[in-house]
Design a protein around this nucleic acid. Structure first.
Lengths: 106, 106
DNA sequence: TCTCCATATGAACACCTATTCATATATAAG
DNA sequence: CTTATATATGAATAGGTGTTCATATGGAGA
Protein backbone atom coordinates (compact mmCIF):
# COMPACT_ATOMS: atom_id res chain seq x y z
CA UNK A 1 0.00 0.00 0.00
CA UNK A 2 1.51 3.30 -1.09
CA UNK A 3 1.29 6.12 1.39
CA UNK A 4 -0.30 9.44 0.45
CA UNK A 5 1.87 12.21 1.85
CA UNK A 6 0.32 15.61 1.80
CA UNK A 7 3.18 18.13 2.21
CA UNK A 8 3.51 19.26 5.80
CA UNK A 9 3.85 22.83 6.93
CA UNK A 10 7.04 23.98 8.57
CA UNK A 11 5.42 23.89 11.99
CA UNK A 12 3.98 20.44 11.46
CA UNK A 13 7.38 19.13 10.45
CA UNK A 14 8.96 20.76 13.48
CA UNK A 15 6.36 19.24 15.80
CA UNK A 16 6.85 15.87 14.21
CA UNK A 17 10.61 16.08 14.66
CA UNK A 18 10.15 17.16 18.26
CA UNK A 19 8.09 14.09 19.03
CA UNK A 20 10.72 11.81 17.53
CA UNK A 21 13.56 13.73 19.17
CA UNK A 22 12.03 13.37 22.62
CA UNK A 23 11.72 9.62 22.13
CA UNK A 24 15.26 9.53 20.75
CA UNK A 25 17.09 9.71 24.05
CA UNK A 26 17.63 6.26 25.62
CA UNK A 27 16.98 7.41 29.17
CA UNK A 28 13.88 9.34 28.21
CA UNK A 29 12.64 6.45 26.12
CA UNK A 30 13.03 4.09 29.08
CA UNK A 31 10.92 6.46 31.14
CA UNK A 32 8.25 6.51 28.45
CA UNK A 33 8.28 2.73 28.24
CA UNK A 34 7.82 2.59 32.00
CA UNK A 35 4.74 4.80 31.79
CA UNK A 36 3.18 2.26 29.42
CA UNK A 37 2.68 -0.10 32.34
CA UNK A 38 0.23 2.26 33.96
CA UNK A 39 0.19 5.39 36.18
CA UNK A 40 3.36 5.45 38.27
CA UNK A 41 4.68 8.02 40.73
CA UNK A 42 7.96 9.74 39.85
CA UNK A 43 9.88 8.09 42.66
CA UNK A 44 8.84 4.62 41.58
CA UNK A 45 9.93 5.28 38.01
CA UNK A 46 13.28 6.58 39.23
CA UNK A 47 13.80 3.57 41.48
CA UNK A 48 12.72 1.04 38.87
CA UNK A 49 15.09 2.51 36.26
CA UNK A 50 17.86 3.34 38.72
CA UNK A 51 17.84 7.02 37.82
CA UNK A 52 18.00 10.10 40.01
CA UNK A 53 14.70 11.70 40.95
CA UNK A 54 15.85 14.98 39.47
CA UNK A 55 16.70 13.48 36.11
CA UNK A 56 13.38 11.69 35.84
CA UNK A 57 11.53 14.84 36.74
CA UNK A 58 13.39 16.87 34.13
CA UNK A 59 12.59 14.34 31.44
CA UNK A 60 8.96 14.01 32.48
CA UNK A 61 8.63 17.77 32.18
CA UNK A 62 9.71 17.62 28.54
CA UNK A 63 7.52 14.60 27.83
CA UNK A 64 4.58 16.36 29.42
CA UNK A 65 5.12 19.45 27.31
CA UNK A 66 4.93 17.34 24.16
CA UNK A 67 1.87 15.48 25.42
CA UNK A 68 3.67 12.19 25.33
CA UNK A 69 2.73 11.57 28.97
CA UNK A 70 -0.04 12.83 31.25
CA UNK A 71 0.15 13.46 34.99
CA UNK A 72 -2.25 13.37 37.88
CA UNK A 73 -1.75 14.30 41.52
CA UNK A 74 -2.43 11.59 44.11
CA UNK A 75 -1.80 13.18 47.47
CA UNK A 76 1.86 14.12 47.59
CA UNK A 77 2.72 11.91 44.67
CA UNK A 78 2.35 12.73 41.00
CA UNK A 79 1.46 9.78 38.82
CA UNK A 80 2.52 9.67 35.20
CA UNK A 81 1.21 7.54 32.38
CA UNK A 82 1.37 7.50 28.61
CA UNK A 83 -0.71 10.34 27.22
CA UNK A 84 -2.92 8.30 24.93
CA UNK A 85 -3.05 5.01 23.10
CA UNK A 86 -1.98 6.64 19.85
CA UNK A 87 1.45 7.38 21.26
CA UNK A 88 1.60 3.85 22.56
CA UNK A 89 0.85 2.56 19.06
CA UNK A 90 3.63 4.55 17.49
CA UNK A 91 6.09 3.12 19.98
CA UNK A 92 4.80 -0.41 19.46
CA UNK A 93 5.10 -0.03 15.71
CA UNK A 94 8.69 1.08 16.03
CA UNK A 95 9.42 -1.83 18.35
CA UNK A 96 7.95 -4.18 15.77
CA UNK A 97 10.02 -2.57 13.05
CA UNK A 98 13.26 -2.83 15.02
CA UNK A 99 12.48 -6.46 15.77
CA UNK A 100 11.88 -7.22 12.09
CA UNK A 101 15.12 -5.57 11.07
CA UNK A 102 17.03 -7.63 13.60
CA UNK A 103 15.46 -10.82 12.30
CA UNK A 104 16.32 -9.90 8.72
CA UNK A 105 19.94 -9.40 9.76
CA UNK A 106 20.39 -12.85 11.25
CA UNK B 1 -6.90 -1.51 23.77
CA UNK B 2 -4.20 -1.86 26.36
CA UNK B 3 -0.76 -2.62 25.02
CA UNK B 4 1.23 -5.59 26.25
CA UNK B 5 4.81 -4.49 26.73
CA UNK B 6 7.34 -7.23 27.07
CA UNK B 7 10.44 -5.69 28.66
CA UNK B 8 13.06 -4.83 26.07
CA UNK B 9 16.72 -5.67 26.32
CA UNK B 10 19.27 -2.90 26.65
CA UNK B 11 20.24 -3.26 23.01
CA UNK B 12 16.67 -3.25 21.81
CA UNK B 13 16.00 -0.08 23.74
CA UNK B 14 19.13 1.51 22.32
CA UNK B 15 18.14 0.57 18.77
CA UNK B 16 14.66 1.91 19.33
CA UNK B 17 16.03 5.18 20.64
CA UNK B 18 18.40 5.42 17.69
CA UNK B 19 15.54 5.12 15.22
CA UNK B 20 13.62 7.87 16.97
CA UNK B 21 16.71 10.03 17.36
CA UNK B 22 17.49 9.88 13.66
CA UNK B 23 13.95 10.99 12.84
CA UNK B 24 14.20 13.68 15.51
CA UNK B 25 16.28 16.14 13.55
CA UNK B 26 14.11 18.49 11.45
CA UNK B 27 16.44 18.53 8.46
CA UNK B 28 16.90 14.77 8.48
CA UNK B 29 13.17 14.27 8.88
CA UNK B 30 12.50 16.46 5.85
CA UNK B 31 14.89 14.28 3.87
CA UNK B 32 13.09 11.16 5.02
CA UNK B 33 9.72 12.67 4.11
CA UNK B 34 11.08 13.44 0.66
CA UNK B 35 12.10 9.82 0.16
CA UNK B 36 8.48 8.82 0.76
CA UNK B 37 7.57 10.22 -2.63
CA UNK B 38 9.68 7.63 -4.39
CA UNK B 39 13.30 6.99 -5.37
CA UNK B 40 15.07 10.31 -5.75
CA UNK B 41 18.70 11.14 -6.53
CA UNK B 42 20.66 13.00 -3.88
CA UNK B 43 20.94 16.16 -5.91
CA UNK B 44 17.20 16.36 -6.44
CA UNK B 45 16.54 15.98 -2.76
CA UNK B 46 19.06 18.68 -1.97
CA UNK B 47 17.55 21.03 -4.53
CA UNK B 48 13.96 20.36 -3.51
CA UNK B 49 14.72 21.01 0.16
CA UNK B 50 17.24 23.80 -0.50
CA UNK B 51 20.03 22.02 1.33
CA UNK B 52 23.68 21.55 0.43
CA UNK B 53 24.61 18.32 -1.32
CA UNK B 54 27.11 17.54 1.41
CA UNK B 55 24.60 17.90 4.20
CA UNK B 56 22.07 15.68 2.47
CA UNK B 57 24.69 13.05 1.82
CA UNK B 58 25.82 13.06 5.44
CA UNK B 59 22.27 12.59 6.65
CA UNK B 60 21.48 9.90 4.10
CA UNK B 61 24.50 7.99 5.31
CA UNK B 62 23.11 7.90 8.82
CA UNK B 63 19.63 7.03 7.62
CA UNK B 64 21.05 4.24 5.50
CA UNK B 65 22.96 2.82 8.45
CA UNK B 66 19.73 2.58 10.42
CA UNK B 67 17.87 1.07 7.47
CA UNK B 68 15.46 3.95 7.37
CA UNK B 69 16.23 4.49 3.68
CA UNK B 70 17.56 2.28 0.89
CA UNK B 71 19.75 3.31 -2.03
CA UNK B 72 20.30 2.13 -5.57
CA UNK B 73 22.79 3.28 -8.18
CA UNK B 74 21.36 4.57 -11.47
CA UNK B 75 24.34 5.50 -13.61
CA UNK B 76 26.16 8.32 -11.85
CA UNK B 77 23.22 9.04 -9.62
CA UNK B 78 22.28 7.28 -6.43
CA UNK B 79 18.57 7.05 -5.81
CA UNK B 80 17.20 6.94 -2.30
CA UNK B 81 13.81 5.85 -1.07
CA UNK B 82 12.21 4.88 2.21
CA UNK B 83 13.52 1.50 3.31
CA UNK B 84 10.19 -0.27 3.69
CA UNK B 85 6.55 0.47 4.25
CA UNK B 86 6.82 -0.26 7.94
CA UNK B 87 8.99 2.80 8.45
CA UNK B 88 6.51 4.77 6.36
CA UNK B 89 3.70 3.60 8.64
CA UNK B 90 5.48 4.73 11.78
CA UNK B 91 5.95 8.17 10.29
CA UNK B 92 2.35 8.35 9.14
CA UNK B 93 1.13 7.33 12.57
CA UNK B 94 3.17 10.07 14.17
CA UNK B 95 1.86 12.59 11.65
CA UNK B 96 -1.68 11.51 12.51
CA UNK B 97 -0.93 11.85 16.21
CA UNK B 98 0.52 15.33 15.84
CA UNK B 99 -2.48 16.36 13.77
CA UNK B 100 -4.89 15.07 16.40
CA UNK B 101 -3.07 16.89 19.16
CA UNK B 102 -3.26 20.13 17.19
CA UNK B 103 -6.97 19.71 16.69
CA UNK B 104 -7.51 19.02 20.38
CA UNK B 105 -5.69 22.25 21.21
CA UNK B 106 -7.90 24.50 19.12
C1' DT C 1 2.51 26.98 62.94
C1' DC C 2 6.51 23.29 62.01
C1' DT C 3 8.27 19.01 60.00
C1' DC C 4 8.50 15.38 56.62
C1' DC C 5 8.14 13.63 52.18
C1' DA C 6 7.61 13.86 47.06
C1' DT C 7 8.37 16.47 43.25
C1' DA C 8 9.91 20.45 40.61
C1' DT C 9 13.20 23.86 39.17
C1' DG C 10 17.54 26.55 38.16
C1' DA C 11 22.30 26.80 37.09
C1' DA C 12 26.50 24.91 35.42
C1' DC C 13 29.09 21.73 32.78
C1' DA C 14 30.51 18.18 29.64
C1' DC C 15 29.48 15.88 25.78
C1' DC C 16 27.43 15.25 21.42
C1' DT C 17 26.12 16.47 16.78
C1' DA C 18 24.42 19.21 12.85
C1' DT C 19 26.53 22.03 9.60
C1' DT C 20 30.11 23.89 6.58
C1' DC C 21 34.18 23.69 3.77
C1' DA C 22 37.42 21.28 1.29
C1' DT C 23 38.58 17.24 -0.92
C1' DA C 24 38.17 12.48 -2.56
C1' DT C 25 35.83 8.80 -5.08
C1' DA C 26 33.02 7.03 -8.81
C1' DT C 27 30.72 6.82 -13.14
C1' DA C 28 30.02 8.38 -17.95
C1' DA C 29 31.52 10.44 -22.17
C1' DG C 30 35.02 12.32 -25.64
C1' DC D 1 43.68 9.28 -20.34
C1' DT D 2 41.19 13.49 -19.48
C1' DT D 3 37.15 16.04 -18.37
C1' DA D 4 32.70 16.62 -16.30
C1' DT D 5 29.15 15.44 -13.20
C1' DA D 6 27.26 13.16 -8.98
C1' DT D 7 28.05 11.60 -4.63
C1' DA D 8 30.80 10.54 -0.54
C1' DT D 9 33.97 11.58 3.10
C1' DG D 10 37.08 13.97 6.60
C1' DA D 11 38.04 17.68 9.63
C1' DA D 12 36.68 21.57 12.26
C1' DT D 13 33.38 24.26 14.75
C1' DA D 14 29.35 26.26 16.89
C1' DG D 15 25.22 25.37 19.11
C1' DG D 16 22.30 22.26 21.62
C1' DT D 17 21.20 19.12 25.51
C1' DG D 18 21.50 15.40 28.95
C1' DT D 19 23.14 15.09 33.52
C1' DT D 20 24.30 16.50 38.20
C1' DC D 21 24.01 19.28 42.28
C1' DA D 22 21.74 22.35 45.05
C1' DT D 23 17.60 24.40 46.22
C1' DA D 24 12.69 25.51 46.01
C1' DT D 25 7.83 24.26 46.05
C1' DG D 26 3.82 21.81 47.63
C1' DG D 27 0.89 18.73 50.09
C1' DA D 28 0.01 15.83 54.52
C1' DG D 29 0.11 15.28 59.28
C1' DA D 30 1.07 16.77 64.32
Amino acid sequence: MAVKTAPLTENQTANLADMFRLLGDPTRLRIVLATLDGPLPVGTIAAKLDLSQSLVSHHLRLLRGARIVRHERKGREVHYQIHDHHVACVIDDMIAHVSEVREAEL
